[in-house]
């Protein structure tokens, strides 16, 4: 088993075509070719930091603003889950906590772990790390379901002038956080994870 880089070739990450090592652009699909990115982790950490930064207001700003007659109340995602749990709706509360706290935090942790492993050229365990990366890429998009539900719920559930539900600013922050985390995971070239398995790996700056 050998890699394109070890053979002095370069593989297109979009269409998998193989070219001589110095080819700049894929002759089949037109994608830019790069055996390995020059500073592979800069974009990963950039998107990761933006994702974490947007997550803070996503948790502290109100997610839903409810107006009944003249009184209005605003709830954060966690506050809403706690209120639901008090009413005995444990399952819904658990789902909200899972989707808005457990999964996002796990994604931040996983991307950071992988970026640190690549950055420190920590050897081995490529198979497990690859699975973690694939899982983050798969789950990442599904976090947007929260945003869709809040948007749809707020605009469909409006029966009269008595009660209205409006999405709070936290919805936008949450959407930005999810999209940035997706970009961070995608900026991490999976070939670098597999490179960690190889003897001796060229320097990754």
């Amino acid at each position: 088993m050998t890699t394109a880089r070890a053979e002095g070739l370069v593989g297109c990450t979009r269409c998998a075509r193989v070219w001589p090592g110095t080819t700049p652009v894929c002759g089949r699909c037109g994608a830019r070719l790069e055996s390995r990115p020059a500073r592979p982790l800069r974009r990963v950490w950039g998107w990761w930091a933006l994702g974490v930064a947007a997550y803070v207001p996503a948790m502290t700003w109100p997610m839903l603003e409810t107006r009944v007659l003249l009184s209005s109340s605003a709830e954060t995602a966690v506050g809403g889950a706690v209120a639901l749990a008090r009413y005995g709706e444990w399952l819904v509360a658990l789902v909200i906590l899972l989707a808005s706290v457990a999964i996002p935090v796990a994604k931040f942790g996983a991307v950071a772990l992988l970026a640190l492993a690549v950055g420190s050229r920590s050897r081995g365990r490529a198979e497990a790390r690859h699975r973690l990366h694939a899982a983050v890429e798969f789950i990442g998009r599904w976090s947007m379901v929260d945003v869709f539900v809040v948007a749809l719920l707020a605009s469909t559930v409006r029966f009269s002038w008595i009660a209205t539900v409006r999405p709070g600013p936290a919805v936008l922050a949450f959407a930005v956080s999810v999209l940035c985390t997706m970009l961070a995971a995608r900026a991490l070239d999976p070939r670098l994870i597999w490179d960690l398995d190889e003897e001796p790996s060229p320097r990754v700056p």
């Binding site: 890699t3 394109a4 593989g11 075509r17 193989v18 001589p20």
Partner: peptide, 20 residues
């Protein structure tokens, strides 16, 4: 070394760069 026409028979895995 690989000749130009041989390269079209190769696939570089976009995930791990392994040649097939």
């Amino acid at each position: 070394m690989w000749a130009e026409h041989d390269l079209s028979r190769l696939i570089a895995c976009p995930t791990c760069d392994t040649l097939t």
